[in-house]
Amino acid sequence: MAEALAILGLTSNLISFIDFSFKVVSGSRKIRQSLEDTTAEIQELKNIIEDVKLHCEQAKQLEHSGRKLCPQERNIIEMAGKCSALVTDLQRAIESLRVRPDRWRTIEAFRIASQNLWRQNDIDSLRNRLIQLDERIKSNIGHIMQR
């Protein structure tokens, strides 16, 4: 009985290793063939980050406009500050997930694919928090538009 459990555990570990290896090799191939030197998901996140930065700057301009702000506008400005902090955290999380110049592209692609798998939970968590803030900002904008 104990041998059967040991064999089952070993088989499970082998399957997990093969799955992880397949994901790394597949990700490496995609990165190697990419024009942006990173995964499509990371490139999409970079585009989102640039968009969020632009909107945060616009919200900060509203704060310095000198006019009296309604509660929803103050909430938007506060959430824009939180978005800026999340963007900074997200940039730190993805900054090393790009092919470094003057390195072997195949080795760099392997490095990025494996790091991407390790950091995926952190990146997804930050992305989800950013999406939640976006929904709250849209809700406040909806309240302002109804006035």
Rank of each mutant, 00 (worst) to 15 (best):
Q115P: 05
L90D: 00
M79Y: 04
Q115C: 12
A80P: 01
S65Y: 03
I76S: 02
V87L: 04
D51I: 11
K82L: 07
P101I: 10
T106K: 10
A109T: 08
F110W: 11
A59N: 02
T88N: 14
V52L: 04
A59K: 03
A113R: 08
E57H: 04
P101F: 08
L45C: 08
N75T: 02
R32I: 12
L97A: 02
I48V: 10
T39E: 07
L45D: 08
C70K: 10
V52F: 06
T88A: 15
L54Q: 12
D89S: 15
G81K: 11
T39N: 09
R74W: 06
W104F: 12
E63Y: 07
N75P: 00
L69P: 02
C56N: 09
T88M: 13
I94P: 03
N116Q: 14
A113L: 07
E44G: 07
L35F: 03
L35P: 00
W104K: 13
K82G: 01
L54P: 01
C83G: 10
L35N: 07
R100E: 11
R105L: 11
R67H: 07
R111L: 04
R32T: 12
A80T: 02
L97N: 03
C83W: 09
E36G: 00
E95T: 08
R74F: 06
L45P: 06
A93Q: 03
E36H: 01
K60Q: 11
A40D: 12
E44S: 13
K46W: 04
E41Y: 14
R105E: 10
R67M: 05
V87G: 03
K82T: 05
H55T: 09
E73N: 00
V87T: 14
S84G: 09
L62E: 01
E36P: 00
C83M: 15
C70T: 14
L97Q: 04
N47G: 15
L86E: 07
D51V: 09
N47D: 13
R32H: 14
A113M: 09
S84Y: 03
T39R: 08
I76R: 01
L90E: 04
T39S: 15
R103N: 13
I49P: 03
N116S: 14
R100W: 05
S34Y: 01
E73G: 00
I48F: 10
A93L: 03
L69T: 00
F110T: 07
C70V: 12
S96D: 15
R103W: 09
N47V: 05
I94G: 01
C56S: 14
S96Y: 12
A85S: 15
H64M: 10
C83Q: 15
N116L: 13
Q91M: 12
E50F: 07
C70W: 04
L62K: 02
E108N: 05
S34I: 00
V99I: 15
V52T: 08
K68G: 00
R67S: 05
A109E: 06
Q33Y: 08
R98Y: 06
D89L: 15
R74Y: 05
L117T: 09
N116P: 06
R111W: 04
F110L: 14
N116E: 15
A85Q: 15
F110M: 13
L86V: 03
V99E: 02
A113N: 08
T38N: 00
Q58I: 07
K53C: 01
E78I: 03
D89R: 15
